[in-house]
Nucleic acid binder design. Structure first.
Lengths: 214, 214
DNA sequence: CCTACCGATCGGTAGG
DNA sequence: CCTACCGATCGGTAGG
């Protein structure tokens, strides 16, 4: 968890220090690199993406990338932890939302669907490329995700205790919900015959009605 | 589709010709290579797995692999198409099964859960590494999967017409079902607190009850 | 099934 | 931000 905190603090201090023109320019170039990287990691996977490919898509030489980033794996960390942090922030906000456990679950489902629809590259990279994180950030990510899953399980348990959710294994419900969303990947690859709103409503209907008791 | 047929025919003729002792031995060594490869592709991904790593886990030198296989990507094709073929075979058998559309969907859900639980390595590689297929097999795989999805959609449509399935977008239902199963990956990585049977029953309950009308 | 080795490409650095 | 280049490793081949 120490590692995560460091990454977050780093990005925050970068933001607050970016008043000077040179630094703002530098930050935005780095953002471009990370954004292009997310797109390429999503398309070809992290190991199959070379720094030369990335440099070309940014419009500079490979060696010049290292004026903005420290290493290839640092880029992967940035992509994964900034979206992972957002997932955790959303979850934390639910604590004080004063809504039922079923409503919390619906909010979580909608959140992940929207991540998949509107922040596709980053979310996809987090979900599919986390294995390629280096030892320490990998351990951090895994423990972070375990915490997230357990929190969701406890919400489902509450719903079952309140007889609002049918008595299903909370663990299975959570796995089902979190992975179901991944199916939207194919919509991104397809001709997009349906609108994002249609997809969201239909998937929420399916996943919530399967959860409700009676 | 031509490519797929070739792969299938190849493996069938290999099987039927494997009566001679030398050939049987050769086939089983190749099987070992492919099996170890599936395990490593699953663990580290196709591009991050080197032929030297694979050779070491088989117990020979990297150069010796090429007495049994033609290329790294041929191994990936074998893994993916032999399990993809099994999925299609199962789907074809449902045509003459004389069961309702809801029962067909349940059978498909159970089939994929069992693939994920009992043929984990192969199934995982198919689901996560198909992007790394070469141009022709990649095109074949994509069209094969599109066909599969459309078949499932039409079964869902039948169920909706018969008022057995609630009027949900069939496309979304299919995406949800096929990707939900992927959640079982985390069970494989975990301490396995639950039995395969528990997981299957709970996930089927969730996914089927979300589909039923009223 | 091995040793020896190929050309290509990898992530990254030095120095300007 | 570039040119020039490093050592390491890649998939695969030759020849035995």
């Amino acid at each position: 968890m120490t590692y995560l905190t460091n990454v977050t603090n780093l990005s925050q201090s970068c933001l607050s220090l970016s008043m000077a023109k040179a630094q703002r320019k530098k930050a935005s170039k780095k953002d471009l690199i990370v954004q292009k990287a997310a797109s390429m990691f999503r398309e070809k996977g992290f190991p199959a993406t070379s720094m030369r490919d990335l440099a070309e898509s940014v419009g500079i030489e490979a060696a010049s990338l290292y004026n903005h980033i420290q290493s290839k794996s640092e880029i992967l960390q940035q992509i994964i932890f900034r979206i992972s942090d957002d997932c955790n922030k959303h979850l934390a906000e639910l604590d004080n939302a004063g809504i039922s456990s079923l409503e919390k679950i619906e909010s979580i489902i909608r959140f992940h669907i929207q991540m998949m629809l509107h922040r596709f590259e980053d979310y996809h990279v987090m979900i599919n490329e986390w294995i390629h994180l280096e030892a320490q950030p990998l351990a951090d990510f895994i423990s972070q995700r375990r915490f997230y899953v357990q929190k969701l399980e406890s919400i489902i348990k509450e719903g079952i205790a309140a007889k609002k959710i049918k008595p299903i294994l909370p663990y299975v419900a959570v796995l089902t919900i979190l992975s179901a969303v991944r199916g939207l990947e194919f919509w991104h690859r397809s001709q997009k015959s349906y609108s994002p709103e249609e997809l969201e409503e239909n998937m929420v209907t399916y996943l919530i009605s399967g959860l409700k008791s009676n």
